[in-house]
């Protein structure tokens, strides 16, 4: 269970980006944070993981407040996949190995190698472990990043626009993998995403943000015409086709 309580944040010299944000996520649920550009979605995600330090509030994961923990202790509980994928001359194996960094003492153990191997196996990238990250396609890189996050053995998985640079096949593949991991391991998974159709297809919970505040949080029923009008400023409605929900935007 992840509970966010009264989170406030402002960037230096700017007005508040997050204003008293509170909500809960149950384990095994895949949550999408939705909202316009500048609504504070990515900022909120980064506040969970010590990348940004909130001015006030609490982020509680299974009864422990993440904000008072050390970086290393947070990294054992929360994994973050950032929007930008690095382009380094490191092998896939070594990049995934970085996920064991929070647990490392002097060097990596056999157990670490086993966990890394399992993580790569699970995402189907075991075949690339000798290749350099810079030689991979966007979709493959994103899977490497996911494997690294899995190697952290987190209780919560945070993803900042993981599909924005991917083709449609990889968008579906990556999100399906995240959803399966989230459901199978009963992990909390949170994704910041712009594509509403993808969010409706894969996510179980939706957090709607507007100007740094929570507009609503719940299952797909909260995503209706008025809500879309309010948070995105467009006339849109949700239609059901063959049991799938889709967004139709009016011109």
């Amino acid at each position: 269970m992840m509970q966010i309580r009264n989170l406030c944040y402002h960037y230096k010299g700017c007005p508040e980006v997050l204003k008293d944000v509170s909500f809960d996520i149950e384990p095994g649920k895949f949550l999408a944070i939705l909202g316009n550009n500048g609504a504070g979605k990515s900022t909120l995600l980064k506040c969970f993981d010590h990348i940004l330090r909130p001015d006030s509030g609490e982020v509680i994961l299974d009864g422990e407040n993440l904000l008072t923990m050390s970086h290393r202790d947070v990294a054992k509980r929360v994994a973050f996949v950032s929007q930008s994928v690095p382009d380094t001359q490191m092998t896939v194996h070594d990049v995934v190995m970085l996920g064991r960094r929070p647990y490392m003492q002097w060097s990596f153990t056999e157990k670490d190698h086993g966990i890394v191997h399992d993580a790569m196996d699970r995402l189907g990238i075991d075949g690339m472990r000798g290749r350099f990250l810079s030689q991979l396609s966007g979709g493959e890189k994103q899977k490497v990043m996911l494997a690294r996050a899995l190697a952290q053995q987190p209780k919560a998985l945070l993803l900042d626009e993981p599909t924005s640079a991917l083709d449609i096949q990889n968008q579906y593949q990556v999100l399906r993998m995240v959803r399966d991991i989230c459901h199978d391991d009963r992990m909390v998974a949170v994704v910041v995403i712009h594509d509403l159709n993808l969010a409706l297809r894969f996510c179980d919970r939706f957090l709607l943000m507007k100007e740094g505040q929570v507009y609503g949080c719940g299952d797909h029923s909260i995503l209706d015409g008025p809500a879309l009008k309010e948070i995105y400023g467009v006339d849109a409605r949700i239609v059901e086709i063959e049991d799938r929900r889709m967004v139709l935007v009016e011109e």
């Binding site: 980064k46 010590h50 970086h71 947070v74 990294a75 380094t88 960094r101």
Partner: peptide
């Protein structure tokens, strides 16, 4: 030598390095 993996993590960007538990 003790911090060798921290530099590797830093190559993936500052945000990623923080999320991997590095101050």
């Amino acid at each position: 030598v003790f911090h060798r993996w921290d530099y590797n993590a830093l190559l993936s960007g500052e945000e990623t390095a923080i999320s991997l538990g590095i101050d």
